[in-house]
Design a protein around this nucleic acid. Structure first.
Lengths: 143, 143
DNA sequence: TCACAGTTACTTAGCCTAGCTAATGAGCTA
DNA sequence: TAGCTCATTAGCTAGGCTAAGTAACTGTGA
């Protein structure tokens, strides 16, 4: 069973687990797909409805120029669109297009397939633990 | 409290949590530091003692050319060294140098600082949950 | 009130790392 | 000798970053 770890030991264990799992999930990329980061940005955008690039960058925890690139890729594919801000002409409003919303669910599903399949092989107890862990980790990442 | 999620819903939640946390941890990079991937490879190498590039690539779940690059960076810094395989001259044996072992602990500590600090702010109960979660995730990543 | 200095928002340019596949060359093995 | 395996090289894309540039907003002093 799990011994009581120090915060530092836990940090090591968690980071390694996350690092490897992250690589695994990224590897299972279907052809012609959106990347992880693109999908994440698209998700945030749909959850929020509409955001400025700065807001989206903050949510995604990247710098604005990085978000400019990601948004550019999504716009090229016609999945999101830029519209002018109603009052402040420096700003831009980003929102998913019809097509973006349509395409999204399908890719999201593929993307999760590998992980979901493996999670299904766990016990209910283990999945409950991971559910609580996901909440805690979201909280930590937000901090 | 946590509702019972389907494996698919859990996959979404986990993936998002991991994605964001990963970015957070990567951001807290001290100057002149090793990258996440370099540190991870160095760790695996020390745990195993010595490995060939192919073996290390498998452990780290990357393709051999990717590992060639990472190993190159570590070698440049004098943290690992390549020695010829005793019987098979195609192969190479990788191992951490004295300096690699010395430098390792220190960077590892810095690397974990941000995460450890935030984990310390959690309750013991939450940390226990994360400890179990880390074990489960390692298992899933290995599968 | 209005000009201009400072600030903010986004983008561009240029860099590095991390991944990948395809191809190459050296060495092993049947 | 033919064919396989291992490591590397070459060349690509994506995703990060900082620094610098441009356009637009805002507030203050004459």
């Amino acid at each position: 069973m799990a011994d009581r770890l120090t915060a530092e030991e836990l940090a090591v264990a968690l980071r390694e687990a996350i690092h490897r799992l992250n690589r695994r999930v990224r590897q299972s990329r279907p052809v012609g797909d959106l990347t992880f980061s693109q999908l994440s940005a698209l998700t945030s955008l749909q959850l929020a409805g509409a955001l400025t690039p700065r807001e989206l960058a903050d949510v995604e925890r990247v710098q604005p120029p990085t978000m400019t690139k990601i948004v550019g890729k999504l716009e090229e594919r016609g999945l999101i669109e830029r519209t002018p801000h109603p009052t402040d002409r420096r700003q831009v409003i980003l929102a998913a297009t019809e097509r973006g919303r349509a395409v999204f669910g399908q890719f999201e599903k593929q993307r999760n397939e590998w992980l979901a399949r493996h999670l299904q092989e766990l016990t209910e107890d283990e999945r409950d633990t991971l559910t609580r862990a996901a909440e805690i980790l979201q909280q930590v990442a937000k901090a």
